[in-house]
Computed example of a mutant assay.
Amino acid sequence: MWNHKAWAGRFLPQSLPAKERLRAYAGWCNAVEGNTTFYATPARSTVVTWAQQAGAGFRFVVKVPKAVTHERRFVGVEAEMRAFLDAMEPLGQRAVLWTQLPGSFGPSEVDALGRFLRRLPADRRRAVEVRHPGFFTDHSSAALLERALAGADAEWVPFDTTVFFQSPPVSEAEQDAWAKKPRLPRRTRALTGQPIVRYLGRDSVEDTVAGWRPWTEVVAGWLREGRSPTVFLHTPDNVDAPALARRFHDDVRVLVPGLEALPEPEPVEPATLF
């Protein structure tokens, strides 16, 4: 997202029109999760404005609509997918098609997932997030999913919530996330040259930074292997997310000195970050 109300006056200019906020956000980070596409496919004209506000190296990881993944479970979704793919077309190869599946989607449905992924446009990157515990605890189920993903050159997106669930929630935002987020083991295996990671910290900046240290090592290793990862940093309230993302990037640069710095954002007043 790039419209978080807590960011105005801190990371984005206070008076910036909504249609210009992505451009400002792109000065802080070089990727974004397209979570809103899960709930409704935007007009193609809207996506054109997204494409115009972000540079050639910016990555859009856009979620496939829930009507396809959660409601229809890939059955009879041709019309919905045509509309979605047409709307996303202005993003070109900057877009990653992100298929997030519900916790009830288990190993018995992997064949349907594989068929769906193979029907996606060949020039679009694919990524899948699963939440069924069987994929993380049963070796044969994990291998089955990995084979299906390999057949479509798709990445397995881990959502690491292990740090978040190490201690009880202390804020309203954390209490809400405690009830809604999945509790799954950390997974650090990359399947493609462009792995994607989602990490959920705490509302406390110190706890979030301390918890991501294993990921800086993993991401640095991927970079040394020639991979090009995308990392999304979440907290339950996301108040400090842009600054945290830059801090994570800088921590990885310590381990991989040749890693390019993120773009320098234009100063925003007041400039209190933490």
Rank of each mutant, 00 (worst) to 15 (best):
F38R: 08
Q52W: 07
R94N: 10
F11T: 07
G193W: 00
A245P: 03
V219Q: 07
M81W: 11
L273I: 12
A173M: 10
P133M: 13
N30F: 04
S141V: 05
P182V: 02
P65F: 02
Q175L: 12
A271S: 15
V61Q: 01
V197E: 00
K181A: 15
P265D: 03
G221P: 00
G134L: 03
E264Y: 02
K181V: 11
A148E: 13
W98N: 07
E80R: 05
L91C: 03
L244Q: 06
P168L: 11
D111Q: 12
A173Y: 08
S45N: 13
W7F: 04
A150E: 14
N35P: 10
P182Q: 12
G55S: 14
V163R: 01
F159E: 04
A243K: 04
W2L: 00
R59Q: 12
R59G: 03
H234Y: 02
E217S: 12
R224M: 10
T161Q: 09
A79T: 09
L244C: 09
D240W: 11
P182L: 02
T46S: 10
D240R: 13
M1G: 15
L244I: 04
V75P: 03
Q14P: 02
T99L: 13
A261C: 09
A6N: 00
F248H: 02
M88K: 12
E217I: 06
R23K: 13
D250G: 05
V170M: 06
Q166L: 09
P133F: 08
R59W: 04
T192R: 01
K180M: 14
L233G: 07
G134F: 05
H132E: 08
W222F: 01
V239M: 06
A177T: 14
V209N: 02
N35A: 12
A122G: 12
H139L: 15
R59V: 15
T192N: 11
V252W: 06
R59A: 14
A148D: 06
S140R: 15
L113Y: 06
R183T: 10
S171I: 06
V96W: 00
E80A: 08
R187I: 07
R115T: 08
A26K: 03
A243W: 11
T188K: 03
R125C: 09
V252Q: 09
P65R: 06
W156D: 09
E109K: 13
L145K: 01
P107Q: 06
A177K: 06
R94T: 10
D250C: 04
S204A: 08
P90G: 00
A79S: 12
L144M: 08
H70E: 01
D176N: 09
A220W: 01
T37Q: 02
Q52T: 09
K63C: 02
E174H: 01
R125Y: 02
A150L: 14
W2I: 00
F135S: 01
I196N: 10
P107N: 09
V128N: 03
Y25K: 11
P236A: 03
A112K: 10
A173N: 10
A79I: 03
L12P: 06
A43F: 07
N3C: 06
T230V: 15
T99S: 15
R73K: 15
A261H: 10
W222M: 07
F232Q: 14
P195F: 09
L16K: 04
L117C: 07
K180N: 13
V61K: 02
D111P: 06
P263C: 05
Q53R: 15
R21Q: 15
V170E: 15
G106M: 04
